[in-house]
Design a binder for these strands. Structure first.
Lengths: 225, 225
DNA sequence: AAGTTGAGTGCACAGTCGTACACTGACTAG
DNA sequence: CTAGTCAGTGTACGACTGTGCACTCAACTT
């Protein structure tokens, strides 16, 4: 159930959880919108997006089904919003983690640890994205594909500044970036399968992730067109 | 609709598609079972397994909903059967493709082409598996995970016979095998996104796949614990 | 020839689904 | 102060869901 939001105008006296302040109309609306997103994410903890009904989400957010349409014109639209919510912060963080470091080793370690922290902080978001990535046609999977391509491009751009890679054709650079992104996503999937609290398994997964990346990057100096 | 099977006892006169012969009872049953699997796969061409209803599948196979239970105790069980149907042949084929060749180059080319042919011959099966792989908890995803681990183990075993890899710890060997399997699965996903008939795109994807594998294997001689 | 088995039928049930429609009443702009 | 906007309400609909139950009748066993 998580943080069931109170949206009903009848009950908002109890909204004193937050200092509240002057609740403007649009602020109120945005709050319910967020409640819908949160409720959806909650329900998605152990289910697929396709099996999620508009009614369930509405109920989880504390509003009546038909009021859902005041915020999203369809479940699909909500799904896309959820994707965006997931990737918004991560992209910047990873970018930062890479540019702070110099040399493969530091960059690998920093990226893996940043990813790890972020995944653990937003498990439900990542569970949702890894599940829906290949879930078939539909706006959600398409939105995820777009975000992934952006990650890949970001990475390719940063990679181009390393010495042996400076002369690579962009095509090969993107190939390498895709390889890395895919490996990282595999790591995310592994992390999400670890049962909560098993920090030893976490550690093992991170070590494996670093190894995988090192394995990939080891071939770089010996590559030719 | 594809190959809608005729299971109704009233209509089986038209079952003269096949020479038919003496239709024993269990043979008949198995035929309807297959019709259910085919119908499900047909419907899964552009939908997720979770959104597939028992009634739809039954209708697609030409039987009444309640008769479904004569063959599977739940949709989940049908899903698992579908997974098994997908991987049954492929595993042996890939294994053969690898052992025929010697040297990385030949092995890579052979594996990629075997995979390509097989994917194109059974697109619906692979679409199903790639979609459901991370589709959440549930027997189907678990069954897929098991099959993937088997692929990986098969590969690790074969890899161990190459010279530089002979001395690797099994742990690292499995790491490498996972990396390769994951990359291959990415290729499958790409292949399935190509619109039918675009053979040029097919070719490009295969070249990229080979490059990816070469990139991974390039680092092998320089690896240390 | 008589009896048993079981794949497939048809009906019926209680739920859930998305969404159309007319509504209320707190906020807000004039 | 007044009129309008619009987030949220309640009812109602037809369609679809999984599954229980009693059934038929061809294929099989004895």
């Amino acid at each position: 159930m998580g943080h069931a939001a109170i949206a009903s105008t009848l009950l908002d006296v109890s909204a004193a959880e937050e200092p509240a302040g002057p609740v403007s109309r649009q602020e109120r609306k945005q709050r319910t919108r967020q409640a819908l997103l949160d409720a959806a994410l909650d329900l998605l903890a152990d289910r697929s997006f396709a099996s999620l009904s508009l009614r369930e989400v509405a109920k989880g957010a504390g509003i009546v089904p038909t009021a859902f349409y005041r915020h999203f014109s369809s479940m699909e639209e909500l799904g896309v919003a959820l994707v965006e919510e997931t990737t918004r912060t991560l992209r910047g963080m990873l970018r930062g983690a890479r540019t702070e470091q110099r040399g493969y080793g530091g960059m690998i370690r920093a990226s893996v640890h940043t990813l790890h922290r972020h995944v653990r902080e937003h498990e439900d978001h990542f569970r949702f994205v890894t599940r829906e990535r290949y879930a078939g046609p539909g706006a959600v999977s398409r939105a995820i594909a777009v975000e992934m391509r952006m990650f890949s491009s970001d990475l390719a751009l940063d990679l181009a500044r390393f010495d042996p890679l400076r002369t690579w054709p962009t095509e090969d650079l993107h190939l390498l970036a895709d390889l890395i992104v895919t490996a990282m996503l595999g790591t995310v999937a592994e992390l999400l399968e670890i049962r909560p609290g098993d920090t030893a398994a976490d550690e093992r997964t991170l070590v494996a992730a670093e190894k995988r990346l090192r394995m990939i990057l080891l071939g770089v100096p010996h590559w030719q067109p």
